[in-house]
């Protein structure tokens, strides 16, 4: 479904991604991991066409995504930092995105799930970081997209909402969707992910199941495996 071929990207002299290639085909939860500044967000943004790679290409359902935009109807994206136009209200932004995407959307169950009803008329600029993140989640999950890209979805969420988010992700997985997720919360990754793509210094250091990574590093949990890779 998603094929990444020889992607390169540098910002000035800093090479962020250096010849990255991999395939994601079946449904499941794929965790993109790596230390800070390893190019996780850059990679996800390349997939969405927000960052233009210096070389290589991304194929989405066999189609090159450069110069194309229609494929984004198939992707739900949750950006790392929930930033919205400050002077819009919650209900306005939900309507606006549904209107711009021109796709059927079901925001109501999600609004109820995260208890956003009482915030619907509030301006986005006046919301707390966690509430804004909930709006962010509603905007991502309200469309029925086969691919969901989550960049640090847990930022600012309280434990109750975190559990609800996990349920959402698991429901998406069981309906055969591809979920790409980045997170620094290792317990979350361990709990959810089927496959791990570990980026290190611009390369894919490891790609495979969680159990393989543990065997490779000889540790018994993910946190220590990662630490073993970063500080051998």
């Amino acid at each position: 479904m998603i094929a990444v071929k020889n992607i390169r990207k540098s910002y000035g002299r800093l090479t962020v991604l250096n010849d990255i290639s991999f395939d994601v085909s079946g449904g499941g939860i794929y965790a993109v991991l790596g230390p800070n500044g390893s190019g996780k967000t850059t990679f996800l943004k390349i997939l969405l066409g927000m960052v233009i790679p210096d070389g290589g290409k991304v194929l989405f359902q066999g189609q090159d995504i450069s110069r194309s935009h229609g494929y984004r109807t198939q992707i739900g994206y949750l950006p790392q930092i929930a930033r919205f136009p400050d002077n819009l209200s919650v209900s306005e932004i939900i309507h606006m995105i549904a209107d711009i995407r021109n796709q059927p959307s079901k925001p109501e169950p999600l609004i109820a799930l995260f208890g956003l009803d009482k915030f619907m008329d509030k301006k986005l600029g006046n919301l707390s970081g966690g509430t804004r993140q909930k709006v962010n989640i509603v905007l991502t999950f309200m469309f029925d997209t086969p691919v969901i890209v989550l960049d640090e979805p847990t930022a600012g969420l309280d434990p109750v909402s975190l559990i609800k988010l996990k349920e959402l992700i698991n429901t998406a997985k069981s309906s055969g969707k591809i979920v790409l997720i980045t997170s620094h919360i290792m317990s979350l990754v361990e709990e959810l992910s089927d496959e791990i793509i570990f980026l290190l210094e611009g390369d894919i250091y490891f790609k495979g199941a969680l159990s393989e990574l543990k065997i490779k590093t000889g540790s018994n949990d993910l946190e220590h495996s990662i630490a073993a890779i970063l500080e051998p």
Partner: peptide, 16 residues
């Protein structure tokens, strides 16, 4: 000022 709005739009199926 509308950088957030622009980023939000860029992730949607709309031509740049």
């Amino acid at each position: 000022n509308s950088r957030e709005f622009t980023e939000l739009l860029l992730a949607q199926p709309v031509k740049r």
